[in-house]
Design a binder for these strands. Structure first.
Lengths: 204, 204
DNA sequence: CAATGAAATGAACACAAATTCATTTATTTC
DNA sequence: GAAATAAATGAATTTGTGTTCATTTCATTG
């Protein structure tokens, strides 16, 4: 097997690719898909407008790939973090915290997630295969299934619970990021976890 | 007090206004804000392009007013329906059902709600006063407060519970409407209510 | 039933922004 | 280090669509 020569161009290519994606995420997040100009992304990534089209075929393509990379990256970190927990119950509990942490560590990320979720309705028709949240939800559902098997949570429908968890966190994060952080995320998260654990029925 | 003469034009005006709004809701819902052309709305409402601008100052304005009217209408119906329930606990329970009913009775309505929720991030900066979901959430929070006072649900934070309920229903409806009705809404709704009532903890 | 004014029309305008491509610059090869 | 190849540039092109406004149609009034 011949030693693969590492060409200078290839390194550069990867760097540019990354720079464009990062810039894209940031600006898409801030302004939404339709208010984002390729010019702006190019500028932030320090490349010419045309260069963007050497790496991505269209604006749609850039958006899709940017989001895909973001989700993949976050999912990877999530799996690493989660797998350190001893029980599946703990994994489920920590899922809330890590999700919020991962999608708020840079302030624009949460906005990108919520924007994307909506935009996806638009993309769904054009690109039926594009279901970026799916993997993320599947992972959550697996944890739920294991926690049920473990006996630490009761036998609820994993899909339903995943919708509740994700839908809630998404709405909370959307409110939070739209309204310029009107409430302490940690507090509300604690309350969410409490309600979802014990339900809202009176104890008696 | 002189008897107000009902002028033919005034009636017509109201009719056109309504026709444009209805068309707007339907097309915005189907295509999202940016993929909707005024021309199309005009066509569906059976008016000329320019006529739209006699009733609404800009496309933004039309979108905002259309959504406002939709929410107002739905909220009104919701209040009527809900007030027939005897206990606040029942009101809270039925809120789920009515919400889903109201936003799925015409197939595009749910999509409009979810699109709007997202778009609002974009509009929020331009029009800070525009917070259409607020009234709806407030109403839900009032019911929660009363149910707590009544003693039928435990003393949870009303805002948090309203986020859980709304966020969950919104995500469920988004999935449902995006994916061309992949699951029976009634079934999943039942499961959602069960989890939120009793929580996901094991009974023992 | 004229005369007046209001409402409606839709072709034309203006402009923003995605994409292209002829040209320039950088990298690799022998 | 010269020739060949690859990458990058950004001005120019193209396209799409929100909005305007001169003109036409319709409604009201006395």
């Amino acid at each position: 097997m011949p030693v693969q020569k590492i060409r200078k161009v290839d390194e550069k290519k990867k760097l540019k690719h990354k720079a464009i994606v990062r810039a894209a995420i940031e600006i898409f997040a801030e302004k939404g898909f339709h208010n984002t100009k390729i010019k702006e992304i190019a500028k932030m990534a320090n490349v010419a407008d045309g260069t963007v089209y050497l790496y991505f075929s269209t604006k749609d393509d850039l958006f899709i790939k940017a989001f895909d990379e973001l989700i993949s990256e976050k999912l990877l970190i999530m799996k690493e973090l989660i797998n350190k927990e001893d029980t599946y119950f703990e994994q489920l509990t920590k899922f809330f915290d890590y999700h919020v942490k991962l999608f708020t560590d840079e302030p624009y990320i949460a906005r990108f997630l919520s924007i994307e979720l909506r935009q996806s309705t638009e993309f769904y028709k054009k690109y039926p295969d594009y279901q970026p949240i799916k993997r993320y939800l599947s992972f959550l559902q697996e944890i739920i299934e294991k926690a049920i098997a473990e006996g630490s949570i009761r036998d609820v429908d994993p899909v339903t619970l995943s919708y509740i968890m994700f839908g809630t966190m998404d709405f909370v994060l959307t409110e939070w990021s739209t309204k310029d952080q009107p409430f302490a995320l940690g507090d509300i998260l604690q309350k969410v976890k409490d309600i979802l654990r014990y339900g809202y029925l009176s104890e008696n």
